[in-house]
């Protein structure tokens, strides 16, 4: 029995890890008031980057660290543009998403041909219990640390303040840009590591379009957990189960004479991503508690400011 449970945990862990870390990153970014619509572009680019780097450095951890750092810097750019200039967060996010999609294909496709032609074997992480459980533990620890950061420290208070009311926070003496840069950098580092682990721990190889849409699933997880680091654990488990066991469900249903196609199985997490946030908004208590930061996605430029 314990063995079976352990098997289930090990089977789900890689999925949980990449979903949870990206949603955690999204929560950090959005807590600071930046509507994170570049997430899917950053995610897809992260997957392509780690693949490209892996071919060069042949060390998964090094590739993961560099990717996380680079994606983190992309976050800094987004924080700068949305905070210092009177620009719509949606417009910036979407534009960067498209650049991210394009660059991902641009970088990784030639590399994937090279890998195939030269029969390079990619040094990804092994999916053995020791490795998987290490990442699982790490991601939960990071989640708890993020929780403490947001709710127990002055930096956390500052992040929440700039998300709720940046003008007020600024009047209180907070440098809104500085705080948003810190929050977005940390958030995007998490998104970068999540996208790296998606490849290193799960797909183990790259193909055109890999990662597209998973940023949005993480976005939806973050949204339906009210951007709360600890609640996110539960929501991520739900989505991980859905991704891991939808095929099992498919088999089970066939036993009852119901057949759902593989395409529906692929679509399930996306359908869930649209509709699970509804559950949250439909329950009044949750709706109030999980309410987004008041200034999320609004232009912080009611007045003038200096660059």
């Amino acid at each position: 029995m314990i063995g079976e449970i352990l098997n289930v945990i090990i089977a789900m862990s890689p999925i949980f890890v990449f979903l949870y870390l990206a949603s955690l990153g999204n929560s950090l970014v959005e807590k600071s008031g930046i509507l994170n619509l570049a997430i899917d572009g950053a995610y897809t680019l992260g997957v392509a980057l780690v693949f490209t780097l892996l071919v060069f450095v042949n060390d998964p951890t090094l590739a993961l660290l560099i990717t996380s750092l680079l994606i983190g810097l992309l976050g800094v750019l987004i924080a700068f543009l949305t905070t210092k200039l009177p620009i719509s967060h949606g417009a910036v996010g979407l534009s960067i998403q498209f650049v991210g999609y394009g660059l991902a294909s641009f970088l990784a496709y030639p590399m994937s041909l090279k890998v195939r032609a030269e029969r390079i074997s990619l040094n990804t992480y092994l999916t053995i219990p020791e490795v998987v459980l290490t990442f699982l533990t790490l991601s939960v620890v990071i989640g708890v640390l993020t929780y403490l950061l947001i709710y127990r420290t002055k930096l956390g208070a500052a992040i929440r303040a700039v998300g709720e009311n940046p003008a007020g926070a600024s009047a209180l003496g907070i440098n809104v840009l500085k705080i948003r840069i810190v929050a977005t950098f940390l958030g995007y580092v998490l998104i970068g590591s999540a996208s790296s682990l998606y490849l290193l721990l799960y797909t183990k190889n790259w193909q055109e379009g890999l990662g597209m849409g998973y940023g949005w699933i993480s976005f939806a997880i973050s949204l339906s957990s009210g951007r709360h680091p600890l609640v996110g654990i539960a929501t991520s488990i739900i989505f991980a189960t859905l991704i891991r066991y939808a095929y099992v469900l498919q088999d089970v249903l066939v036993g009852y004479g119901i057949s759902i196609s593989t395409f529906i199985v692929i679509a399930l997490p996306f359908i869930a991503a649209v509709f699970i946030p509804l559950v949250v908004t439909a329950i009044p208590q949750l709706r109030r508690r999980f309410a987004p930061p008041k200034h999320l996605g609004k232009i912080f430029f009611s007045e003038e400011r200096s660059v």
Binding site: G102, A104, Y109, L113
Partner: peptide, 10 residues
């Protein structure tokens, strides 16, 4: 080896 995605999205 440039893909269509790279050439349109970029």
């Amino acid at each position: 080896s440039l893909t269509g995605a790279a050439l349109t999205y970029i």
